[in-house]
C-alpha cells in the first residue's frame, strides 16, 4: 500500500499548448512493423482533447494541399492504430471532417479528401468576426503590436500556402 502513483503527463501548460509546440510527442516517428503511416502529421499532447488536435492537424493538411483532393483518408482502424487512440475518437474525427465537408465518402472507395470543400458564408463570417476579434484581444493582452500580429499571420500563411499574393491552388 505504498505511495499512490496516479499521474498523467502534461500539466496545466501542456493543456494550453498548440499542436506542434515543444514538449510534445511526435507520434509519426514511432511507427513499427505494419503500423499504418498517416498521410498527415500530428503531434498529440496529453491533456488536451485528442479529437480537437487530430481534426486540426487533418484540416491543416487538407487546406495546405498536403493532402490533395481525392486522396484516401485513413480508416477508423488505421487512424486508431497509428495514433494509439480510442477507436470512438477516431470515428468522431472522420465523422467531423465529413460533416464540415473536408472529406467525402465515396461508395465502394472509402473516405477521401473532398474535391470541393468550400465553406458557407456563415462559417466565414464567424472566423472574420468573433474569432479574429478574440485573437486580436489576446494579442493585445500579451503586449503584441499590430505589426507583430500581422507579421505572424503573414508568416503562417506563407508557410502553409505559399506567398499571399499567389491565388489559392485549392477550389
Amino acid at each position: 500500500m505504498g505511495a499512490t502513483t496516479i499521474s498523467a503527463e502534461g500539466g496545466g501548460d501542456a493543456r494550453r499548448a498548440r499542436v506542434g509546440s515543444s514538449g510534445t510527442l511526435d507520434i509519426t516517428c514511432t511507427s513499427t512493423h505494419s503500423t499504418p503511416v498517416l498521410p498527415f502529421s500530428v503531434s498529440l499532447t496529453t491533456g488536451d482533447s485528442p479529437f480537437r488536435q487530430i481534426v486540426f492537424a487533418a484540416t491543416r493538411a487538407v487546406v495546405s494541399g498536403e493532402m490533395p483532393a481525392g486522396e484516401p483518408f485513413p480508416s477508423v482502424r488505421e487512424l486508431s492504430q497509428a495514433l494509439k487512440i480510442n477507436p470512438n475518437t477516431a470515428h468522431k474525427v472522420v465523422a467531423e471532417l465529413v460533416r464540415v465537408g473536408l472529406l467525402e465518402v465515396l461508395p465502394g472507395v472509402g473516405t477521401v479528401v473532398s474535391s470541393s470543400w468550400r465553406a458557407t458564408d456563415d462559417e466565414r463570417g464567424v472566423l472574420l468576426g468573433e474569432e479574429i476579434e478574440r485573437l486580436v484581444v489576446e494579442a493585445r493582452r500579451l503586449g503584441l503590436s499590430h505589426a507583430d500580429l500581422t507579421g505572424a499571420v503573414e508568416r503562417w500563411w506563407t508557410t502553409l500556402f505559399g506567398p499571399a499574393d499567389r491565388p489559392a491552388t485549392r477550389p
Binding site: 496516479i6 496545466g12 494550453r16 491533456g47
Partner: peptide, 16 residues
Amino acid sequence: DDASLTDVFIGLARER
C-alpha cells in the same frame, strides 16, 4: 481555471 487530469486524479487518490 482549467484543471488537468493529473489534478483530478491526485485529488481522488489523496482523499484516502
